[in-house]
Computed example of a mutant assay.
Amino acid sequence: VSDDTRASQSLTQEGVQVRKEMLEAAEVGNYSLAEVGLKSHNPRVRATSISVLSKNGLLNEQACLEASEDLDPLVRRSVAEAATTILTIPLINLLQDPDFTVVEISCWAAGERGDQGDGVIQILSEITVGHEDALCREAAVAALGALGNPDGLQSILVATEDIATVRRRAILALAPFDNDETKKALNKALEDRDWQVRQAAEDLVIEE
């Protein structure tokens, strides 16, 4: 076993114990370990600290900003998850993160919290039509549907021609809109080769 492997295993074992103690302390209202954990050298500990503090309304703005620029994607993912309920966490940089999992979670956060400011719709639209990762495109088009902003409609329509998983989300994302373009897309989806896409379209047509 190499020295690097031993170091990684040691870091993981240490992190498991620290996180266990942190979570146990948080259950009885003690968040001091979570606050200290923000500065840990272990990214898993830092990520857990973000999660614990955010769920209990104790994550301050400075900690959010620092964590959103953390070198480890585990930590940035925790910030993206926290952004669902902490509206002061800016999503712009997280939506453009080099790590696809951070982008995916940030898209869901944007949709959940109804974020329509600071160019969010534009970035979600760009992800929807151009991101190389299908899960990111799927999350982005779902967010556009949840937000229901007309500026995102053209990207949703483009996504109705994507792979099946994205097409399903795109069809569902058409729900807030009602015009000739959306009706045309729904009618086309009724004959889609994927049964779940057809089902999604049928459900929307019935609702109309």
Rank of each mutant, 00 (worst) to 15 (best):
R113Q: 13
V79M: 04
E126N: 13
A200R: 01
I127M: 04
F100N: 14
S155T: 08
P150G: 09
I121H: 09
P73N: 06
G111W: 03
A110D: 03
R46M: 13
T88I: 15
S10T: 09
A159T: 13
C136V: 15
E191K: 15
N60R: 05
P90E: 03
E208A: 09
Q17L: 08
D194E: 07
S8W: 04
G119L: 06
T85L: 12
G148F: 05
G15R: 08
L144H: 12
E81Y: 02
C107F: 03
A159E: 02
R77N: 03
G152L: 04
L157D: 02
D178H: 01
A201G: 09
T5V: 12
E191S: 15
D194L: 07
S40I: 10
L91T: 10
D70C: 08
L186T: 03
A83E: 11
E181M: 12
E202V: 12
G57I: 14
R168M: 14
A159C: 09
W108P: 03
V45H: 02
E138Y: 10
I50S: 02
P150A: 05
T12I: 13
T160P: 00
R168V: 14
H131I: 11
S49A: 10
L204D: 09
G152E: 06
P150F: 13
E191I: 15
R113S: 14
E161W: 13
R193Q: 11
A146T: 03
D178Y: 03
Q13F: 15
T48N: 10
I206Y: 04
E112F: 11
R113W: 10
S51F: 10
D3Y: 09
D203Q: 00
V102F: 00
P176S: 03
R137G: 09
T84I: 10
V166Y: 03
N93R: 11
E126A: 07
P90K: 15
